[in-house]
């Protein structure tokens, strides 16, 4: 991993650990309303200021980070799982199975991702699980296409032929012989996509489809505070900076991974 990748991974880890232990670092609770400290600009007492209900923004930003990052990472891995399953089946069996799954992939990819995610998330009551489902119901498609392409090339190789000759069942070939071969590129792809997941998660929470108030997420903090933008810009500023830094680090990390493990050689345009 290059230097940029290492630094980015370090920053992400730092942000996540600060969020995990935010209750030990900051003396304020992210959800307790304090009416005598409304809309205070950044000061020594409140480094990032307070919001419309007197809650400390630093506490909320860190607490929100825990939710935003874990939801995005979880959704990315969920997409990876679905994509792996469908890609393996589609590439290995080919024929009608392949045609069915790949037209589904085309359908998902041809539609604006955010609209699709919004469409999925209104089906369920808003919350973090809904966001995870929405993100992965859109995200699996590109994983499935990548894995399928990889399986197509593997299918013809001699070790699969040998496995067939020995009499391995389809299930065994898929799970023991093909699946482990797909793990590395699936992980690289996850790394590439995480920045996008952070942004889409933020957008969904911004639109009010994520975790509900008083729970803080970066996106919902921006949407709840944007009416005060002219009088108290700090309320909107810091959550946005956090989204941007996290997404930037994930994107840099992804670029680094892309350079190291050239997954374009699997003939997939990302």
């Amino acid at each position: 991993m290059g230097l940029t990748g290492k630094i980015s991974a370090g920053i992400i880890a730092t942000i996540f650990f600060l969020s995990l232990f935010s209750s030990f670092i900051i003396p304020y609770d992210p959800e307790t309303i304090e009416l005598d400290s409304l809309r205070q600009p950044p000061s020594l007492k409140h480094p990032l200021g307070t919001d419309n209900k007197g809650r400390d923004i630093l506490a909320r930003v860190l607490y929100g980070g825990k939710i935003s990052i874990s939801v995005s990472v979880f959704a990315a891995f969920l997409s990876m799982g679905i994509g792996l399953l469908i890609g393996l089946l589609s590439g290995y069996f080919g024929g009608k199975t392949d045609m069915f799954f790949m037209s589904l992939v085309d359908l998902v990819l041809s539609f604006p991702a955010l609209l699709l995610a919004v469409g999925v998330s209104v089906i369920f009551p808003p919350g973090i699980y809904t966001v995870m489902i929405a993100l992965s119901s859109v995200g699996w498609a590109s994983f499935a296409r990548l894995i399928r392409g990889h399986v197509l090339t593997l299918r013809e190789s001699s070790f699969i032929e040998a496995a067939k000759a020995v009499g391995c069942s389809h299930a065994r070939i898929l799970s023991v012989h093909l699946f482990p071969q797909c793990i590395p590129i699936a992980f690289v792809m996850t790394g590439l996509k995480l920045g996008g997941y952070i942004l889409t998660e933020a957008a969904l929470s911004f639109l009010g489809l994520g975790a509900q108030p008083p729970t803080a997420t970066w996106g919902s903090m921006i949407s709840a505070n944007r009416v005060f933008i002219s009088s108290a810009p700090w309320m909107v500023f810091s959550p946005g900076v956090m989204i941007a830094i996290t997404a930037l680090c994930f994107n840099l990390l992804g670029d680094d991974l892309r350079e190291k493990y050239d997954i374009e050689k699997y003939s997939i345009r990302l």
Binding site: G195, A202, I229, P233, G240, A244, A247, L248, F250, N251
Partner: peptide, 22 residues
Amino acid sequence: SIAGLSIPVFWSGLMLMLFFSL
């Protein structure tokens, strides 16, 4: 360009609005 891909649209929009309009 990497930064441009990482900044959420709804935030950059609000910041532009804050600066140029308000």
